[in-house]
Design a protein around this nucleic acid. Structure first.
Lengths: 127, 127
DNA sequence: GGATTAGTACTAAATAATTAGTATGCGACC
DNA sequence: GGTCGCATACTAATTATTTAGTACTAATCC
């Protein structure tokens, strides 16, 4: 009865970050990337990527010996979904309290906010 | 080897929200609150609260027949930890991209940002 | 051609998270 | 005093997540 994660799990995200950064990867590519940061088995990476393919986050195409994996959804879209899920779960959907936390935690300064609000004002053509 | 959650899990958070809102609760209080939103067993709530007590999020004191539970950590502090964990995991620690997503997703308007940045400017005594 | 290498599929085991059943005790009520 | 309701402790089952081993295949190397 445990609910399946509606978004990417921690390890899935780790892998997707690598895939998005390179666009076209083999299991080996991802494996070697991850190995630099921690001990992990090749087959573990393979299993995770198979799951990501099942979940439609990756598309695989046979190419020479190994499969080549590519993301099916743009990073932006997926991350936005994760943010939305987080805001819903933790803040019941409203973003202001999140913002307050970020500021209190010095993740954002008033300067950052002004900068971004200026960006918004200037980049508002299509609404 | 699956890593234990460093922060509150989904259901744990659900319960903690109720506890924070009331400050002093019994299992039954939480159970009835949750029942309004979904089907759940009394013992399930009890198990979760026992876990939260083990994890030091709750403190229980015998009182009459049932235990009374109280939060040990303020909501603000715990939520801040969750935000931090999320920003680290998803955005490698930097908050600006999160902000951009929030704005793109219409969770925040330029007006919201300006408002909050004004609040910061005015409320900056101790830094 | 046999050994080595790199890849995949299949299988499975460990742990975390979630849910809940059963047994048991204690006070209230009749 | 027996029964009922409510509380807890203990136990356990289910599912998701993470990790990886084993067997097999195909290409490569000597």
């Amino acid at each position: 009865m445990r609910p399946k994660s509606a978004t990417l799990t921690e390890q899935e995200l780790e892998i997707m970050k690598i895939v998005w950064a390179r666009e076209r990867v083999t299991v080996r590519d991802v494996y070697e990337d991850m190995l630099e940061r921690r001990k992990i088995a090749y087959t573990t990476v393979m299993t995770m990527m198979k799951i990501l393919a099942q979940k439609k986050y990756l598309r695989k195409t046979q190419e020479d010996r190994a499969y080549v994996y590519q993301p099916t959804k743009p990073k932006n879209q997926v991350i936005k979904g994760m943010v939305r899920e987080f805001v819903n779960r933790v803040f019941n959907g409203s973003a202001e309290p999140l913002l307050v936390h970020l500021v209190e935690d010095r993740k954002l300064s008033g300067k950052d906010l002004e900068e971004i609000s200026r960006m918004i004002r200037e980049g508002r053509e299509n609404g």
